[in-house]
């Protein structure tokens, strides 16, 4: 088991390294650079100014050299300097990682809490009206554009009803403590978490239902039932536990979807997370921030899939590494 984890970590590291180069290279293919951006906002900048800044920033060097430079500073523990904000990258991204972590974990937990019971219920009541309606609900979740949903949620709950804030991360300028602080953070999380979970709820519900159905139809459950075991016991002790296993894989894969979704959700809700900084930095050509946020998101996704595999092994003792 331990060896397996080490092996997986090494593989992930290698993939990360490879991806970092590909991403860096693709970023250099993007038109313009941070200095060009300055010219766009400021008509007084002369070509001499631009030339001077480009050589100061090392932007006049070929892509591979810039990549090596970047890798060098990264390995020395320096995440680099943001060209947009003109401060160290670590200062920007530090708090944002935590914010995104809250957002995605809450969204994941919420969608599982809603989807799994619904999926089990639908499987047990297969063919009934509730199953039908739940199926409709699940498909709606998968098919709805999340940014659109986010806008509608803002329109309904923030603007029309005035119940929740329309965007932001927390109330600015209030010194809150204890429960008030927690509640304040939660208030700002409700709408983003809702819009982010909706799609996952659909996916998870369908998988739970499918897995449950397969197991309920299996010989093993039939045997259990024929033995005269209590239906509740059959469902939860035998069927549900076995259905959990395929769900874990889905959850692990879904983490990358949640992260993609977070980019849009954070952008619409002006929520200070890594997802938003991925988008902002790519748009403003802020290489260092883009690369670091990109790597962070990859690492998060890799870690989740590794965790899922370990969890898999714990739940299903048949699997040996």
């Amino acid at each position: 088991m331990f060896q397996y984890i080490i092996k997986r970590l090494m593989q992930s590291l290698l993939t990360l390294l490879l991806l970092s180069f590909v991403c860096y290279f693709v970023l250099t293919l993007m038109p313009g650079d941070p200095v060009d951006m300055m010219a766009a906002g400021n008509p007084n900048i002369t070509s001499e100014d631009m030339q001077r800044l480009k050589s100061l920033y090392g932007l006049d060097q070929p892509a591979y050299k810039r990549y090596l430079n970047w890798m060098g500073t990264l390995l020395s523990g320096d995440l680099g300097f943001s060209r947009t904000y003109k401060i160290p990258v670590s200062d920007i991204l530090g708090p944002r990682i935590l914010n995104t972590f809250y957002l995605s974990v809450f969204a994941l937990v919420l969608s599982l809490l809603v989807a799994v019971p619904l999926g089990v219920y639908a499987a047990v009541h297969k063919g009934k009206l509730t199953d039908y309606l739940l199926n409709l609900f699940a498909f709606a979740g998968i098919s709805i554009p999340s940014f659109w949903l986010a806008l509608i949620l803002i329109l309904m709950f923030a603007v029309k009803a005035g119940l929740l804030p329309a965007g932001g991360t927390y109330s600015v300028g209030q010194d809150l403590e204890g429960f008030a602080l927690v509640w304040d953070r939660i208030k700002y999380l409700i709408l983003p978490v809702l819009s982010l979970s909706f799609m996952q709820i659909g996916t998870f519900e369908r998988y739970t239902r499918g897995a449950m159905l397969e197991i309920l139809n299996s010989d093993y459950i039939r045997t259990a039932r024929s033995k005269g075991l209590e239906e509740k016991k059959v469902l939860f002790k035998h069927a549900f536990r076995n259905a959990l296993i395929p769900l874990i894989t889905v959850v692990a894969i879904s983490f990358s979807y949640i992260f993609s979704g977070a980019i849009i959700t954070e952008t619409v809700f002006a929520y200070q997370g890594v997802g938003k900084s991925v988008y902002d930095s790519i748009k403003s050509n802020d290489f260092n921030v883009a690369m670091v946020s990109f790597m962070i998101s990859m690492i998060m996704v890799f870690m989740m899939s590794l965790l899922a595999d370990i969890f898999y092994a714990v739940v299903d003792p048949r699997i040996k590494y």
């Binding site: 806008l151 803002i154 329109l155 923030a158 603007v159 005035g162 804030p165 329309a166 965007g167 932001g168 600015v172 300028g173 952008t267 619409v268 809700f269 002006a270 902002d280």
Partner: peptide, 22 residues
């Protein structure tokens, strides 16, 4: 006595914030 400047890039969300009093 206190001025708070908030950055909200999405102009739609900006307006929502204005309307909801944030």
């Amino acid at each position: 006595k206190t001025i708070i400047i908030k950055l909200i890039q999405n102009t739609g969300t900006l307006e929502a914030n204005l309307r909801s009093g944030s």
